[in-house]
Design a protein around this nucleic acid. Structure first.
Lengths: 217, 217, 217, 217
DNA sequence: GATGAATGAGCGTTCATTCAT
DNA sequence: AATGAATGAACGCTCATTCAT
């Protein structure tokens, strides 16, 4: 076979890569195996990508693009914060179902072997959503939709922490198991329930002014 | 040197292992290097542990034991839920400062290369805390300390998600960067502030009955 | 581009090949790079030449043809031996300046990787000049121009050895350095001096009958 | 087999390396093959030497040490120049017979792939002998043993050129063939004859003042 | 005929593991 | 028991060669 690689083939290679990198991690994943599974020669990987690391980055980029696209809609428009939250949760559930590996890859870069690039990667990946989330929350404070006695950046951070863990809990093997341990196997499938409970969690956390709550300590 | 390995030496080896595994990940960490840095021969690693994987597990166990010990106190007694939460947060901050690598190792097992053992590991590691957290929350519901219109297992899950992300945010390079992006560099050092804001988040989320909150959707 | 390769293009390819083979050696030189630098596809290299080895041989042949042409004039006619020698030395200097790579390529085939073809190559390359040189010297002996107490083949051999080393000393990196170490950097540029001294060397060696020299051993 | 490599084994490995590098050149020689032929694992080569290049350098050093040792004796003492020359020629013949590969390796570094290190190598390798030869000749000039109307550095250079070519002519496949073409197959075996003729060549070249020779141009 | 993308055998190198000492 | 040199399978990468277009 020596006709030029179609765009589709390139996509297929990336998908294979994502799948292998997700399954074995960036270090253990085998370039020769990925090539074989993609039905191309290793040479192709070295022609289109800059070695194993370059290929991993390409897979990562692909995965992150898809993840961004998945939540894109949810952060557009000027919904009230909880509406946005609901959209986000549902987007996460949907995307985790469709492409769990994208989340696995995202998770991968937070681990040891990618440490060297932590700062760069974090800036690239978290920059946009962090600004978006902090913006939402600050705006919501101004609009009187959520309480004013909180630090919007920290609350945005907490908010994203929850969503991030949700992503992993639906996609990464370990976190799925943990999810089941906490909530029972059936909860993994009961998307609606998770949405409702998490919204309750957010709603209260976001909207209840401290003064309204009698201190119990 | 033919003298038997002292308990202290074994500890030192584990610490070296933890440090190397944390720095390079389970795959890239080098057994021969670990032995050299520990001042022992590779032979002992193979005598005392079952290969690289067995040694990693031992390091992991060591790290987890320490992490458990660190939060042990916080989950003892019968404090009110928010007092417990505060204790937990502070324990996490303390432990992350003292031994960030323990958290890194914990994080490591959630990633790809450990996937094979996800179920076993999760059961071993999350079993205790999940039961504890679910127990607290159910108990607090009974006592009227927190709201009744929630699923205690899910809320325990959310609760631990927050704490888990906090752990990583203080310890793992990528998450530290992300923390800084969301909250600014200075927040990483401002433990008190984080405690207070996270407690606000939990307090409202836990104590505010849905009915008290006017719906805004 | 489907136009047939012009003779000029073929020449250009050979020159590129010579340059690359001279720069990196026959093993490390890269066929694909040569094609790219020549502005043709690898395909033509395989169409016009028999693989990498065949192409190297073609480059070599080209280089040797040029080297032969450069000394052609010097071995024509029936000059006295020292006149011929001078012409040869100057031809070598000229040719080394103009196309050092030709000499480098010549040198290349005397090395390991070409060993398999040593006999064939030597016969092809050295045959003509050896016959010429031996002829000159034998003739000069007959004419009484040079001494009779020597073996003309060995002296032709010595003669060519000197010229060969001179070629390399002007063209091949290592031998240039060695030249500088022996004679100083400035001698590399002082062609005239080299001509004169080498002629002295030859003149005495060729013309002085042993009997004229008082033995000093 | 896992007892520590004996000095003898290390020597054997170097000899195998020299032989393989001589046979195939530094680029084509195969580290895994060398290891296998030496009866050791590749790992050993990487433990004792710095990769393929480091190993080649070690082989080279070994070869050069042996070559130096072989001519050491000849350049000791304060023999008259022609006595020295004779000793050198015989040393070259002996060494070429015993270890032709050492010469092949020496020849190898003058070729393309070693170009990068030409300056360093030349300084290391040629430095000593060049100083020795130039010294001899200058001294012999002072002593009135050889003529004064020559540049001692250039004549030392010519002298070493002849010896160098002799080395290669006895050791390197291509030059051996060339030797046979010039002088006939039997001359390769007739060491005595070569010694005598080359000495004649040197003797006249060195001792005959220009003035004694009637110009014939 | 000319192209150049694709191929995949082959090689340098690493490192988990073994076992004679 | 402890050692650590030796092992060699395995992997990332290169590049000479092929052949559909």
């Amino acid at each position: 076979m020596l006709k030029k690689l179609s765009e589709a083939k390139l996509q297929e290679i990336l998908e294979t890569g994502i799948s292998e990198f997700a399954a074995h991690g960036p270090d253990k994943a085998n370039i020769n195996v990925i090539a074989k599974k993609s039905g191309v020669s290793v040479g192709v990987l070295y022609k289109y990508y800059d070695g194993k690391e370059g290929f991993f980055k390409a897979c990562l980029k692909q995965a992150l693009r898809a993840l961004e696209a998945a939540i894109e809609e949810a952060i557009q428009g000027d919904d009230k914060i909880l509406v946005r939250a609901e959209k986000l949760i549902r987007a996460i559930q949907r995307s985790a179902k469709e492409n769990p590996n994208y989340n696995v890859l995202y998770h991968e870069i937070t681990a040891g072997s990618s440490q060297r690039h932590a700062a760069t990667l974090a800036a690239e990946i978290e920059g946009i959503s962090s600004r978006a989330y902090v913006g939402f929350i600050a705006k919501a404070q101004e609009d009187g939709d959520i309480r004013k006695d909180i630090n919007p950046r920290l609350f945005a951070f907490f908010f994203d922490n929850m969503l991030t863990m949700l992503q992993f809990s639906y996609s990464c093997e370990y976190y799925r198991e943990r999810f089941k341990i906490y909530c029972g196997e059936e909860m993994l499938a009961d998307d609606e329930r998770v949405v409702q409970e998490l919204l309750k969690f957010f709603e209260s956390a976001f909207t209840t002014e401290q003064s309204q709550i009698p201190h119990k300590r």
